[in-house]
Write a protein that binds this DNA or RNA. Structure first.
Lengths: 204, 204
DNA sequence: GAAGATACCGACCAAACGGTATATTGTCAA
DNA sequence: TTGACAATATACCGTTTGGTCGGTATCTTC
């Protein structure tokens, strides 16, 4: 056979390339319609190499959730909320940042987490669990911040931090979803600004 | 060829059967992964009949959006909001109804509109437009009710009806999405109850 | 430096897909 | 009654899909 292999081996790089290409392919087409051929074309990795690193397409998808989408969100929210002493300000600024950074690509493809939830959670229990782990962590980080805000007398004491955190996360996903379908950065921003109003109303 | 046709012809019924089966197949698998073979198997309609009524799979999907999903939502929200003199009460009760009617199947498959938005809106402009038409109508109905509430002195005058309507719709979709992934009726209900709190805060 | 493990290659495969072609039958107007 | 057309049936097609397999090149270890 005619063998033209990569000059030097680099399994880690190969794996990362695959994860990265798979992430983008899934973001654009969804998981089920994601094409392995297309992923391979975008990485110049061979099919053999792909199946060396990942047992099935499903495994690749699960790895994307765990190793790409999860850390992405974790970093953004965890470090951001840790920077503020007041959770109301922290949340408000996070949304403000989302409003400021809103651009065509966010509006076009929406939230990778939400996309996968809607598509895959009823179809594959492992996907659902992988996504749920991220979701729970997200809600937990927000709830924890709110709880500390209550102790510090910054957040209304009559509110349930867990319920509010859940609702805030839901609202964000909803705003992204609507903006995505409207293909309108403005609509997305208007929607998030209402969420800011709600967040402000949580202050004492 | 061996012809075993339906005893009596009924094109309208055939078309409706197809729309109904397609709706359920799409709800369960998404549009791209929806299988025509499976739809045919669930209707005992032949492939020839299907392609007589719908030019392509895409046309079938668009018809489901326009003729099944759209009217479903229209009926629920339009008639419901018309029953109340006070939009705050109307919206509150609509959410209360959603909370009361929450069951496994809602939680399992989520909102058909939201599912299609996340999957198809970046991939097919016609889908996006069909979905957007429903979305805009939904937002408009809510906004109109709020506007009338403002005139009647029931809704805070400093609020923008359009923005709030957009946000409410987004929040609902978000709540369904989270409940769907958590596979938890309780989480879904907790989320919606926070939305009720927000809605109440709109009163004068 | 030989051996064994790891990484990678690309041709091939069966199955499922959406869609087409052609044949047949029910319906209804003339 | 018949002729035309709408409605339905099924065999078939090309393409794409995820996945396999035998083989090769590189790296590590002793």
């Amino acid at each position: 056979m005619n063998m033209i292999q990569r000059k030097t081996r680099n399994p880690e790089q190969t794996r990362n390339d695959l994860l990265d290409a798979a992430y983008h392919e899934i973001l654009e087409s969804g998981f089920q319609a994601a094409s392995l051929e297309r992923i391979l074309a975008n990485t110049s990795v061979s099919k053999g190499a792909l199946y060396h690193h990942f047992g099935t397409k499903r495994d690749l998808g699960l790895a994307v959730i765990e190793e790409v989408i999860g850390p992405q969100l974790e970093e953004r929210w965890f470090t951001m909320l840790a920077q503020h002493d007041n959770p109301i300000n922290g949340l408000y600024n996070l949304i403000a940042e989302k409003i400021a950074q809103a651009d065509e690509s966010v509006i076009r493809y929406g939230c990778p987490l939400n996309n996968l939830i809607q598509e895959m959670s009823p179809l594959d229990e492992s996907f659902r669990q992988g996504l749920q782990k991220i979701l729970e962590r997200w809600v937990e980080v927000v709830a924890q911040a709110l709880k500390e805000g209550q102790s510090a007398g910054q957040v209304r004491p009559d509110a349930s931090p867990e319920d509010i955190a859940l609702y805030i996360v839901a609202s964000i996903e909803g705003c992204v979803g609507l903006g995505k379908n409207a293909q309108s950065v403005a609509a997305y921003q208007r929607c998030l600004r209402q969420l800011q109003v709600y967040i402000k109303s949580l202050a004492v």
